[in-house]
Amino acid sequence: MKKTAMLGALALVLMSGTAMADTSGKKIAFSNNYAGNSWRQAMLKSYAAVTEQAVKDGVVAAADIFTTADKEVPTQAAQIQNLILQGYDAIVINAGSPDALNGAVKQACDAGIVVVSFDGIVTEPCAYRVVVDFKAMGLEEVEQMAKFQPQGGNLLEIRGLAGTSIDEEIHQGILEGVAKHPEFKIVGSVTGDWDQTTAQKAVATILPSLPDVVGVVDQGGDGYGAAQAFAAAGKPRPTIIMGNRQDELQYWKEQKELDGYQTWSASIAPGVSSLAFWVAQQVLDGRSDIPHDLMVPYLAFTQDDFEAVLPTIEKGGVASHEYTLDESKAAIAANM
C-alpha cells in the first residue's frame, strides 16, 4: 500500500516534470471579443495573472491576449485566422457567437491547433468547451428563495442577453424551480442584459403595474439596479438574488447591517478563463483523455461567507476565483 502511494507520488512528480518539458515551447493565444464591462475586465485580469506566472515559470513560452475592437463576429473570425497564421499552438476563446465562428475554429483545428472555448462557447465539435452549469444555478436561486420566503409569493424575473445560451439555461433552471415550488409565481419578466443600468431601467418600467413582489430572481450584474428601481418607486424591498458583483455584495452588507437582510449570490467566476488556459496547456501536454465538454461549478456566496470575500473585490469588480494547475486537473477529473 505504502509502496503504491510512493509510486503514485513519483509518477505525479514525473508527470508534472514532463508537463513542464512538453509545453515549455508552446504558445497559447487568447481571443476575446469584448472588454467593456466589469465581468470581462475581471476575466482578463484573472487570465493575465495566471498566465504571466505560467510564462515566468516556463510552463509555456507565451500566453498573449487579443481583444477585438468591437463586438462583431467577423472581426473575431479574422482575428482567429491571424492567430493561426502566427503559429500559435493553442487558442483560448471567449466567442462572440456559438456557431458563427465555427468555420474559423475548424480551420484552427485542421491546422493542428488546440481550441478551448469558455463563457461564450463555440459548438464546433473539435473545440473544447468549459461551461458552467447555469441551469443548476437558476434552480438553486428558487431553492434559496424558498428558504428566505417560506410563504411563497410573487417573483420578478430579470433575464440576461437575449439569444445567448446562458440566458436560456438560467431561465430554464428558474422555471424548473418554480414548478417544484408552486408557492411562487413569476408575475413579470424583463430583460436586464446582465447590466445594472439596463436592469434598473427595465424594472422601473414594469414595477408600477406589478402586484407586490416578494423576490427577484436574476442572472447576475442586475441585482443592484433592481434594488435601486424598487427604492425609486417607493416599493418595499424584496429578496433580491445577487450576482457576485462588488456593488451587489456591498448593498447586501449595508442592508444586512440595517435589518438582517438575507439573500444569496451566485455567478460564473471570471477566473474560469484561467481554467480554460490550463485545459489548453494540458491538451498540449499530450493528454487525450479530456472530454470536449467540461462542466464546472458556479461560484456562490451565502449569508455567512459573503462578507469575507467582499473586501477582496475591487470597487466595480466581480468576485473571482483563479484556478491553479492542480485545481484545473481536479476540475477536469470531475468530468471524467
Binding site: K201, A204, T205, L207, P208, S209, L210, A232, A233
Partner: peptide
C-alpha cells in the same frame, strides 16, 4: 394600451418612471 392591460393599476407610477427615464 399599457394602462388598459393593467386596468389602471400603477398609472401614476408608469408616468413618473417614463418622465424620469
Amino acid at each position: 394600451a399599457t394602462i388598459a392591460f393593467t386596468r389602471g393599476v400603477g398609472t401614476g407610477g408608469i408616468l413618473t418612471a417614463a418622465l424620469s427615464l
